[in-house]
Design a protein around this nucleic acid. Sequence first.
RNA 1: GCACGGGUGGCAGAGUAGCUAUGCAACGGACUGCAGAUCCGUGGACCCGGGUGCAAAUCCCGGCCCGUGCUCCA
Length: 477
Amino acid sequence: MALRVYDTRSRAKRDFEPHVPDKVRIYACGITPYSPSHLGHARQAIAFDVITRWLRHSGYDVHYVTNFTDIDDKIIAAANEQGVDFSQVAETNIADYYTVMDAMNVLRADAYPRVSETLPEIIDMVEILIEKGHAYVGNDGVYFDIDSAPEKYGQLTGQTLEMVRAGAGGRVAETGSGKRDHRDFALWKLAKSGEPSWGSPWGEGRPGWHIECSAMSLKHLGETFDIHGGGADLLFPHHEAEIFQSECCLGIEPVVKYWLHNGLINVDGEKMSKSLGNFWTISDTFEHVDPLSLRYALLNAPYRQPIEFNMAMLEESEKHHERMIAVYGAALVAAGSAAWAGCDTLEAASERFTTGMNDDFNSRTAMVEVQAVVRELRTLLDKGTDAELIAAGVGWLDEFAGDILGLLPAEDTVRASVAHGEGARSDLASIVEPLLEQRAAARTASDWTRADEIREELNALGVVVEDRPDGPVWRLE
RNA sequence: GCACGGGUGGCAGAGUAGCUAUGCAACGGACUGCAGAUCCGUGGACCCGGGUGCAAAUCCCGGCCCGUGCUCCA
């Protein structure tokens, strides 16, 4: 089955056909680095990470760009508050972004352009928009003139000019802005005293929010590209503004072939956001679970659906993820890794996995298959036969759970962790084994009280004993 | 208010007309002195009201509810 993707602009799933066969150009709106990254950023980054991984797996040559909006009002505000330069705020938070994203196996994009490195291109674009009559210079900056392209209004959100006109009257007069119409938006903001600024034909200032993404996507991907992504909260005004800017500047429609928007994260039924103050930063979340367990939790729903986030769902994901790693590790150590092709069960699993991913990158459906294979593998390990099949299962997990979903730690890490567990095991063996012998004797004598006492002593040492039909086994908690 | 999504079993989440989704949880059984692990099995849902169809969770109409957006936000 061919890949189909849901395109926000056409509000339908469409067959995926990039402009240039076999090549895909993606731009995803990244972060404004004014504070440490939160779960919303994780969801966005992981969603597009898996999308690019799947496209590459499907044979496309992918060029993936995501940006840092490192010049922004909120960064300036944070810098003033902290008494540091705005660029320092941006650097600190960009470093945090890389750290947490790396920990979650988010592969690096091909480019991370920044506003601060794209000013000439932004200025060029604004000049063209003015020349073409799509923008005008007001007393405090340059604005996009909505009335110059009214037919483009509401491309993503379905709103009309009149609706928004009715919804937000009077705001312009209050702010004293140089806008002619409150729906116009800033392309260039002239600096007030003390604000960081850059030179432009219209005076010292900085780019408005929106224009940077039009300029960066043009610079890095060209006049048209295939996928533009971002969080659903960017639909309006950010992405609609981009459509105005890019299409009016270039005289091309559409510039973006498919618009993909990831769903937001809810906490207690409402959107998690900085403005509501109910957000979890990613590093906070790492205090509770392994970064890859968090990744698991965030891939356990289709990327477009909202996720209701709470400790219960996080813990459940952690449980599933840890079991997956444990089974994977045991199988890896027991039998290594081998090609899975030719094994009917695994072929069928990969087919269902593929069908799911080809249906608008449904990672949830894909994860169901991963869980099924893990379960299968656990059974095989329990029986301890068929090393070949176990190795094939490991190979399958390497490819699907590892390469595509990014849920597996590096093989060396897994081996080390298994070895570490075995090391701890052998350290304890001299204590545990005699106790187990005593317990076996007690059990033979039907002295259940004594047997249970010994089991509890072992529990206190962090040792879990399980009586199997063929004798007791023990492991570390 | 307007726009865009969505409402499926305890939870997550498949499923665009007819056949068990699946996972976790629950329950029952096997195994066990017990517990745990594992295996087998069971129950349980389609927001409400109409309509079209031999047949609707699935299509149409109306209503209700939830989320998001309506110029801070991934």
